[in-house]
Simulated assay, not measured.
Amino acid sequence: MTTVIIILAAVIALIIGFGISGKRSINVTALTSPGNIGQSGLLGCTFEPDIWMGSIVIRWAKVGVAGLVHEFRGGKDHLQEQDVVFQGRTAVFADQVIGGNASLELRDVQLSDAGTYRCSITTSRGSGAAVLRYQTGAFSIPRVHVQTSSSGDTLHCEAPRWFPQPTVHWTAYSNAGKCLPHAADTSYELNSENITVKVVSFLRNITANATYTCVIENGIAKATGNIKVTDFNITRETSLHMVNLNTESVSSSLPACHWMLLLPMCLLSL
């Protein structure tokens, strides 16, 4: 009886670890940041490395799209089944695949590229997949500067491309940390592609010995422009951060019902 229990435990371990096909599930992880319309984007995907390049198959698919986004196997691209909307716009990093990098470069990002993508990996060690949600929009770093005129100094905060239309808000503090009153005028001008907008915001009647911050943000990105004004000089600092990074991973596994059905067969063979 003890022998039977040991054998059954070993069988279950093998089935769970390797599956019906004799291969185990492998860890696949996807990470993405939003795509900037008109520029190149990255859909990140990594997997457990395999020394046999010929055994590695990478398939990228998108929910709602009939064809594949990209396929790479045997060390080469295989794009016969690639959907027309992705033709000429995708690439994997072939020299990094053997190290476990299945990330996809997506060139000339379109607004319609947003959606749910699946990165599926098969190697000699097993298979797995990861799902990610890809957002698209437009975002850019602002330029902040002071314009001097006879009516007083005006602070300008401009960013060339945003979508969806962002909100803009300012903060103003004296060097002593006191919140200063401020009133800004913000306008949005549609760019030539009729999707993105140019953002221009003015802050009038600024004073020396204070720090002003312009924040531009939507649901995808947040850009900040800081400008510190003193009696002697002006210093600037800008930054851009993505606000919606996401990561998901799913490893393929053997359904419980499969190995439960195998148990009676194992018992009968003992």
Rank of each mutant, 00 (worst) to 15 (best):
L31F: 13
A130R: 00
T247C: 01
T46H: 05
V11H: 08
A210R: 02
R236Y: 12
A94P: 14
T2E: 12
H70W: 07
G115T: 06
Y117M: 06
C45N: 02
E217H: 07
A210F: 07
V69L: 00
G64S: 11
G177S: 06
Q87F: 03
K228C: 01
G19W: 03
H169P: 00
L262H: 06
F232K: 15
E248D: 15
F47H: 03
L263Y: 08
Y173E: 13
I216E: 09
L203C: 03
T32R: 08
T154R: 15
I206Q: 03
A129V: 09
R125P: 03
N244G: 05
T2D: 12
G44N: 07
D113S: 04
V168G: 07
T247D: 08
F163R: 08
K198C: 06
G128F: 05
L31H: 11
R118C: 04
V85A: 02
I20E: 14
P255H: 10
F202H: 15
V28W: 00
M265W: 10
K76L: 12
A91P: 00
L68N: 13
T211V: 14
G67E: 01
L14F: 15
C45H: 06
V200K: 15
T167I: 13
L270G: 11
I5E: 08
I206M: 09
S192N: 12
N233W: 10
T3K: 11
A159I: 12
Y188K: 09
K23L: 15
I121T: 02
G54M: 08
V215D: 00
R107L: 11
A256Q: 09
A176C: 00
S239N: 14
A210K: 01
L111A: 07
S140Q: 11
V250F: 10
L245G: 05
L203D: 03
C179P: 09
H70M: 02
I16N: 07
Q82K: 07
V28A: 05
N209D: 14
G152S: 04
V250L: 09
I58P: 06
P142L: 02
P255Q: 06
K62H: 03
I51R: 04
M242E: 15
S269Y: 08
R204M: 04
I121A: 05
Y212E: 05
L104V: 05
T211N: 07
A223T: 08
S55T: 13
A256T: 12
K228P: 00
T29D: 09
F72P: 06
L267A: 15
L111T: 04
T136W: 04
T167L: 10
L268P: 00
E81T: 13
L111H: 01
G115D: 04
I227M: 12
V243P: 01
A256I: 15
E248M: 01
T148N: 13
W162D: 02
S127Q: 12
I141M: 12
S252Y: 11
K222D: 03
D153A: 14
R125L: 15
E71M: 11
S187N: 12
I206H: 06
Y117V: 04
F163Y: 15
I141R: 11
L190Y: 04
A13R: 01
L111I: 11
I6G: 06
I16D: 10
